[in-house]
Amino acid sequence: MNKLGWLFLSVSEGVELALPSTSVHRVVDRGNPDFEGFKVEAVDMAAFLGAEPDPSLPQVIVVLRSGAAWLVGDASLQNERESLAYLRLRPDYLRITPPWCRGVLRDARHWAYVVEEGAIA
């Protein structure tokens, strides 16, 4: 059983990311007056990953405790009492250094890449 809760970030069809909820300061949706201000500085995660954004997703900005902000399609919390399997990912499976991903979280509903925050810029 995981001690952490996870925030799942939908980036595009088939690409979902996961962040420990403890890394997240707030999630700002499009209806929030702060959205456009954060968007100017936010890293567009679909563009960063070279993924096709899913136009059906509402777009939210995830503001991290580090001060970084990421634009993603949507975000949802995973109940911390639900069990999730973590599979480690070898760094040499990735094309960029430092690796942006350190593992995969999976259950019946998710195959999510656990993001290495420091590698996203």
Binding site: G14, V15, G50, D92, L94, R95, V104, W111, Y113
Partner: peptide
């Protein structure tokens, strides 16, 4: 098959295989 964004050129994607990630 799961596509891995920014994956190595030799990698088509990933597959789950009994508790491990299979390239």
């Amino acid at each position: 098959l799961h596509v891995l964004p920014l994956g190595s050129p030799w990698l088509q994607g990933l597959l789950e295989g009994e508790g491990e990630v299979v390239p």
